[in-house]
Amino acid sequence: EMGRVGESLQLARVALVDQSGQLLLDELVAPEQPVTDYNTRYSGITAKMLRGVSTTIDQARERVLELLGPQPEHAFLVGHSLENDLKALRLRHPRVLDTAVLYPLRVHARGAPAKCSLRALTARHLKREIQQSEGGHHPIEDAVAALDLATLKLVNGLNFAMPNASWGSGFADMHDVLAGAGWACAAVGEEAELRLLHSAEGSSCWPCASDGEAVALGLREGGFERRVLWMCLRGAAEAHGQGAAARGAALMQLGQYVRQLAAQLPPNTLVMVLGTGAMAVEGQLTLQADGAKRPPGCVAFAVTRVRPTTAEAPASTKPSC
């Protein structure tokens, strides 16, 4: 557990259990600098608890290494978001089982997976509640929960509790429903993204290297009625942080691609354009500001065209965001 010193976190308590969940270490650590926020709501640490504590961070780290055995580099450390714990301990360790990585909330084609909280994972997969105390988290309880989750993963295999891809989530399920109604499905994107799609029998996947190539393939593969087309266009998202001019040009290009798809694809076509980083605001596309803390995520919008039922009702070619 950690307290806050200015903008940084500082180790305040370290706990370690063995592979059977038996307690090996539960040690309070003296702050090196005056603590500005004990983060009691989450850490359970108070000023009173640390009064008179003399154990230093270096001593706590050495104690952890001793408990890992005569060859600590051969031992596995298990925890949740272990990068925070290792940073607080000022420790590098070659072998870890991190439940935040073993049980990702979402898988991205690019970058690290999104994380789920230890509390939510424990409730979902172990059917028990942790972190219920008003006094904050208990490191021993958290350690045992992470150990049990890691064991569950090892028993059931790597694919246990893995989510679908971020932009391909639900592709197979949607395909099954639509195929039963006589619709065909196709996906266009980079190879890494297509590999994240759950394969669905009868669907087609077409790799491409650029947004322009993706649109050309989409027009070719979507040129049949009753077709659902999944596409990933990254140009606008990749312009994030490049300045207003670059973002504006990328957004304009994205709009042109969408209009081209809406105009040239046949009636009764549904197109899902994902991974753009664009948002629809009052019917207009916009991008996240340059000063945002994180790059824009995968926000989807659909383009639909429906065959008119009478000669007086022309087909709509206006994108629906």
Rank of each mutant, 00 (worst) to 15 (best):
R305Y: 01
P295L: 03
A184P: 10
P94T: 10
R234K: 00
S320F: 11
V215N: 05
Q10P: 14
A114N: 07
V29K: 01
C321F: 14
T46Q: 08
M174W: 06
Q33D: 09
P94E: 12
T99C: 07
I57W: 01
P94W: 01
F160N: 13
C208G: 04
L126H: 00
A278W: 00
D18Q: 02
Q131A: 05
G283V: 05
P113C: 04
L118R: 01
D98F: 00
Q260W: 12
G111D: 05
A143V: 06
K153I: 08
E141V: 12
A313G: 15
Y42L: 02
E312H: 07
I57S: 05
A237V: 05
I45H: 14
E225D: 04
L270H: 03
E238D: 15
I45K: 11
A47Y: 02
D142W: 04
R226E: 04
G79Y: 06
A100V: 02
L118Q: 04
A12F: 15
C232M: 09
P267I: 07
Y42F: 15
P296F: 01
S43W: 02
Q33P: 11
L251A: 02
G69W: 08
H137R: 13
L68V: 02
A214M: 08
R92Y: 03
G212F: 08
G291E: 14
R4L: 06
T36A: 11
G222S: 09
A278E: 01
R124F: 10
T269F: 11
V29R: 06
L217C: 03
G135A: 06
L287C: 11
